[in-house]
Design a protein around this nucleic acid. Structure first.
Lengths: 207, 207
DNA sequence: GAATATTTTAAACGATTGTTTAAAATATTC
DNA sequence: GAATATTTTAAACAATCGTTTAAAATATTC
């Protein structure tokens, strides 16, 4: 999953990709049309020529990023593997994504926070999540007493929040705990393993 | 802990409190000097008269909020109570804070993310955290085999991330799971209890 | 209560914002 | 290869940005 590094020859794509990089780093408010033009190495009028406005360009990019973020999770939730492995994979996937694109989640959260009604369009996500194989496995496990009764609404945030929050506040955590880049890397790796174990420990009841 | 509702008569304070409200809602980039003046119901020149610049005013407010955020946690970490109760209290405190001031954490995270070197000044937080009673209890518990060997660097984010992340993405979670305000309230309450139990479950080894 | 110091005001400053224009450059069509 | 369509350009647009000014209003001092 490489978000921003691909380079197309077409001007429209160059602008879209440049805009994605700048928006992810600076947010909508912090990004100027000239920032995008400069990053794309294109004339400033081309943004509006191809996308009509900064707003339209942003909406297109935001929608793509949201889609990509959720679909990668849903893909794993539907894999035909046991629930313990599945939890590990979701956490692992989350970890790799945050390492590769540390700006993504804070960007999404912050933009939604500023204008939720504009950005949260009608979505089939609820139904998609409820009908995953993961949710079936959860229901069955709870029924047979092998799993602690927790709804998917709780389990899903648990699997993502611990890792995402660590990277969301990466600079802060590094500063507070005096960690170098390498130390944070090692620390986050061990933290990830704690998270996997902790969730499985809690959800899966011993028999 | 009431952050933004107090009303002072002094113009300087009225501006500071209005600025705090607007900054928390819109962030530094999204806030204009005129927004602040309007919220404070004051002439626009007064911001610079009292604080020299929007930047200086922001820095003052940001520093205060950071301080307040961390000191409330450290206070609990130093309470003379057993570690299980302490974990519950930290999570509970975190939950109440997010309910009362849902904008605080996303604001802090986002501003630091945009300009970490400017906002993360030298701090004694590391030493403060390491010398808490909680850290002593942690060391002792690990030594005597009653606690799983986890560093405070991992435990602390675990205690805050699950709750904060839920509220950070409150609008998103509400939308995805079709929750009304009341349903989210009930959900977050039960989620909070899961988090308390899960962390204690993992950290505290049965004998 | 006149003189001084402080606070508040309306108006304007130059810089930057998102966007548009109309001409120039390039590509495509027949 | 002339005619047409598309893409790119430099320049400008009005609006808004953070900030400053200098005068007016108010408070304080003696």
């Amino acid at each position: 999953m490489n978000i921003v590094k691909c380079v197309s020859e077409k001007s429209e794509d160059k602008i879209r990709e440049a805009a994605k990089r700048v928006f992810l780093k600076k947010g909508f408010d912090g990004t100027t049309s000239r920032d995008i033009a400069k990053e794309a190495d294109m004339n400033i009028a081309l943004t509006n020529y191809y996308f009509r406005s900064k707003e339209k360009l942003f909406m297109e990019i935001f929608k793509d990023l949201m889609e990509m973020y959720f679909q990668s999770i849903i893909l794993i939730l539907n894999k035909p593997i046991d629930i313990k492995t599945k939890i590990s994979e979701v956490v692992e996937n989350n970890y790799q994504m945050m390492k590769q694109e540390p700006d993504l989640v804070i960007f999404i959260m912050n933009e939604i926070h500023k204008e939720p009604e504009r950005l949260l369009v009608k979505t089939a996500l609820y139904h998609q999540l409820k009908s995953t194989l993961f949710n079936q496995q959860l229901d069955e496990g709870i029924e047979t007493g092998k799993l602690r009764p927790i709804r998917i609404e709780s389990i899903l945030p648990l699997m993502t929040s611990c890792i995402e929050f660590l990277f969301l506040g990466k600079e802060m955590h590094q500063k507070i705990f005096n960690m170098s880049e390498a130390e944070f890397e090692a620390f986050s790796e061990s933290h990830k393993d704690h998270v996997k174990a902790m969730i499985c420990n809690y959800l899966i009841l011993e028999d």
